[in-house]
Write a protein that binds this DNA or RNA. Structure first.
Length: 639
RNA sequence: GCUGUUGUAGCUCAGGGGUAGAGCACUUCCUUGGUAAGGAAGAGGUCGUGAGUUCAAAUCUCAUCAACAGCUCCA
């Protein structure tokens, strides 16, 4: 007998060799019907694999991340089966599950796939799924595996096999289709009830542009047609919310071919929005003991040689500019930290004045590959809500916790309720990518892990995602459509203080090395606002929105009254405008609704006589008439 | 940066070897209105840029720039 521990701590006994599926069934038929995979001692596995030893078990259903990815991974095999059936001779690369669905990289030879193939593939997949084929796992000797794919003529699988060790190789088969695969898979194809082929795109074999370009077939599947419909609706909604489109419609920002790609121009409305966001954080930071500074947009190349940025990114950056007479080299600043290090170091520091918190909305310029540029979320010139905290090693944790608190405060204020934090650690296999001693790295990594544990912040860990000078805590924020975005970041750095030879005098009258925290709750203003636009679909929080109200006179006889209303509301520190165009009231309502003005105030004869406004809430229609001051009071309570 | 697609009026887009079209926006006039598009007239483009082919190029070819999708990258 073996002991199986369930997530709630319960332990039950089963015969050795029992499968996870049998265990699920022993709990309830309902669970057995819905379970897709199981984690056995933390490893996601097929339900049919026998369990021979004591183990802890967690069942994964569609609702879990693991359940979905198993379901989609199995769907990728189904896609491959369909492609093989429809287009014999297709060769297969890799076919993983991704955040929203899955893909399979395929080589279709001379034939190229067109959108007309999409419904055919979908039909075939559904047809095959109805066969209820089991996903059968079997262990194979490397030689046999090689023989199989040689026979089949699939050079990509052969190459993958090349990197695998004998004894660890498994095949999965459903229906006629056999694939080299580690698994796990769902029991059979039956739960796959709804299929959508989303896109065909080129992708290089193994991501190497010198190698052959395969066709990447993106698709998504669901256990219910309704869920597919909802997903497709969500995709449509995302398109409507695209910040590039809304940015243009709401006149927030623009790009100009003449100015250059990746260099956004902020229009008056966008600037109003952004300034409010900056003011909000500036006030909050002053309250928390930050000292604002201003530094130039360029810096001597020597600065970046000292910081290590030149060595690390020099050749992939905007190249130095030269003074005409002396030939001195300057770089557009890609980071604010070297400048801030110089500010810290401009005079001796005592432990009594630490922590020193230096803040700047610093505009930086980074060369991004042309193919990477994307709206406001990936640009070549952007402004970080940057700050650098210099503290003693003893203060590190408290400072880190303070920054965590600020970041969470900022996200909450902007309506981002769901987020996770990713701890980005150094890749232990490739230490050459980083500067600094092992000891400092370990200290910094430990500080982040301990601080996040202390406040109970749920985190994931990613190896190899650290900055070259230190580990990071990145905030991954979920927007209203459930998409994840990386926004704010906190980084612990022992290395730059060393490179800049920064010190403070301790109580022992000795020089010590401060620790530095880089942090940016928004990340960059550009990216943050891009994400915010999509999160709120252009309907910004009232305290942020460029115009809180529009006053719509019913005819031009009431334009004077409209301006009186505006004046009174402005005296209450509210902001808006009068739509005094010679248009019908219906037209003015429509246009300003589309501009997502939160309140439309309709004024005509009745209102002018009563000193009132008829209020119309964006998207909600007529709310009735109230006095001007009553409206002002109402609006202010909503801020 | 790589592969592919696209580039025509402020916006969305049609057209296409013989020097350009629609809707909306804009301007003017009429209309003076009551909760999501009132009416009429008008103005606006060397068809992204450069070169080539041609009697003739916005249309075909090449290069280049930009946007979009994907890949690779991200201090």
């Amino acid at each position: 007998m073996i002991n199986i521990t369930f997530p709630d701590g319960n332990i039950r006994q089963y015969a050795a060799g029992t499968t996870a599926m049998e265990i699920a069934r022993s709990i309830s038929e309902g669970l057995a019907r819905n379970v897709l995979a199981a984690s056995v001692n933390g490893e996601v596995r097929d339900l049919q694999r026998p369990i021979h030893e004591d183990a802890s078990i967690t069942f994964h259903k569609w609702e879990d991340k693991e359940g979905k990815s198993t379901f989609w991974h199995s769907s990728a095999h189904l896609l491959a089966e369909a492609l093989e059936a429809l287009y014999p001779g297709t060769k297969f690369g890799i076919g993983p599950a991704i955040d929203n669905g899955f893909y399979y990289d395929v080589d279709t030879g001379d034939r190229s796939l067109t959108p007309a193939d999409m419904p055919k593939i979908e039909q075939k997949m559904l047809e095959l799924a109805r066969n209820k084929s089991e996903y059968q796992r079997r262990e194979v000797a490397k030689n046999d595996a090689i023989a199989y794919f040689k026979e089949k003529g699939d050079e990509y699988k052969l190459e993958l096999l090349d990197g695998l060790e004998d004894g660890t190789i498994t095949f999965y088969q459903q229906g006629e289709f056999v694939d080299l695969c580690r698994g796990p898979h769902i029991p059979n194809t039956e739960p796959i009830k709804a299929v959508k082929v989303l896109n065909f795109a080129g992708a290089y074999w193994r991501g190497d542009e010198k190698r052959k370009q395969l066709t990447r077939v993106y698709a998504i599947t669901f256990p219910k047609q309704k869920e597919l419909d909802e997903y497709l609706h969500m995709v449509e909604e995302a398109k409507k919310r695209d910040h590039r489109k809304l940015g243009q419609e709401l006149e927030l920002f623009m790009f100009s071919e003449k100015v250059g790609s990746g260099l956004p121009l902020w229009l008056p409305k966008g600037t109003a929005l952004r300034s409010r966001l900056e003011d909000f954080l500036k006030k909050e930071q002053i309250r928390r003991g930050y000292q604002p500074v201003i530094t130039p947009h360029i810096g001597s190349k020597k600065l970046y040689v000292t910081s290590g940025h030149w060595e690390k990114y020099g050749k992939d950056s905007f190249q130095p500019i030269f003074t005409p007479q002396e030939g001195e080299e300057f770089l557009l600043k890609p980071m604010n930290c070297p400048h801030h290090c110089e500010i810290y170091g401009h005079r001796p520091r005592s432990y009594r004045e630490l922590p020193v918190r230096i803040a700047e909305f610093g505009t930086v310029y980074r060369y991004e590959q042309s193919g990477e540029l994307h709206g406001l979320t990936r640009v070549r010139g952007f402004t970080q809500d940057d700050a650098h905290l210099f503290c003693t090693p003893e203060q590190l944790k408290e400072e880190f916790l303070g920054v965590l608190d600020l970041t969470r405060h900022v996200l909450a204020k902007l309506g981002f309720e769901k987020f996770t934090a990713q701890i980005s650690l150094r890749d232990p296999e490739n230490k050459a990518k980083y500067i600094g001693s092992d000891e400092n790295w370990e200290k910094a990594e430990r500080a982040i892990i301990e601080a996040t544990e202390e406040v109970g912040l749920p985190t994931t860990r990613e190896l190899g995602e650290a900055a070259f000078y230190g580990p990071k805590l990145d905030f991954m924020v979920k927007d209203a459509l459930g998409r994840s975005w990386q926004l704010g970041t906190i980084q612990v750095d022992y290395n730059l203080p060393e490179r800049f030879n920064l010190t403070y005098v301790g109580a022992d009258n000795q020089e010590h090395r401060p620790v530095m925290i880089h942090r940016a709750p928004f990340g960059s203003m550009e990216r943050f606002i891009g994400v915010l636009i999509e999160h709120c679909a252009g309907k910004f929080p009232l305290w942020l929105t460029p115009d809180q109200f529009a006053i719509l006179p019913v005819s031009d006889r009431f334009v004077d009254y409209a301006y009186q209303v505006k004046q009174q509301l402005e005296a209450e520190e509210l902001r808006g405008f009068v739509d005094d165009r010679n248009e019908t009231i219906g037209r003015k309502i429509r246009d300003n609704e589309m501009k997502r003005i939160p309140f439309l105030l309709i004024v005509g004869e009745k209102e002018a006589e009563a000193g009132s406004v008829s209020v119309r809430r964006q998207g909600e229609g007529d709310q009735g008439a109230v006095s001007i001051m009553e409206f002002a009071t109402q609006l202010k309570t909503m801020l």
